[in-house]
């Protein structure tokens, strides 16, 4: 038995040719801005370095969850000389108020910024009452 086989038995080696490779990576909370206007609540989250298809937005039990994953593989061959920010995925959760129409959330990503438009539900929209 060669040394390599022994190690393989001891710890399962990941076959780099096929199958999914996962990287240990830290998760960060993205910075967000939340704005409100008459008809909707708009949320902007900074998620630099994330491709559109690696963003997941879910709503479950009044909790809005953002999850965005970066691709760390491009950093593999780079030697860091001076670093100021950490690399990692992004995740953050928000509790939604009851007055949001959960079925009409519009998500968009542009230049590393995820924007979510949360429409207020019909019953809380201000309405003008006509005087007859």
């Amino acid at each position: 038995m060669t040394l390599k086989e022994l190690f393989k038995k001891d710890k399962k080696e990941v076959d780099t040719k096929e199958g999914e490779i996962t990287y240990a990576c830290r998760f960060y909370q993205p910075n967000v801005d939340i704005l409100e206007n008459d008809s909707e609540i708009v949320l902007y989250a900074d998620i630099p370095g994330v491709n559109k298809e690696d963003v997941e937005v879910t709503v479950e039990n009044n909790t809005l969850k953002l999850s965005a994953k970066i691709d760390p593989s491009e950093y593999r061959d780079l030697k860091p000389l001076y670093t100021e920010y950490g690399l990692g995925h992004f995740t953050r959760e928000f509790k939604l108020g009851g007055k949001i129409d959960k079925d009409s959330i519009v998500a968009n990503i542009d230049n590393g910024v995820l924007s979510l438009k949360l429409k207020k539900s019909q019953e809380v929209l201000p309405r003008r009452i006509e005087i007859h």
């Binding site: 902007y44 900074d46 630099p48 950093y75 061959d77 000389l81 001076y82």
Partner: peptide, 23 residues
């Protein structure tokens, strides 16, 4: 410190990365 910078080296190249979301 906005925006934050990361400086890397690869072979004979310097690679500077900075996060500038929304710009």
């Amino acid at each position: 410190r906005f925006p934050a910078l990361n400086l890397f080296e690869k072979d004979n190249c310097l690679i500077l990365k900075t996060e500038v979301p929304g710009i």
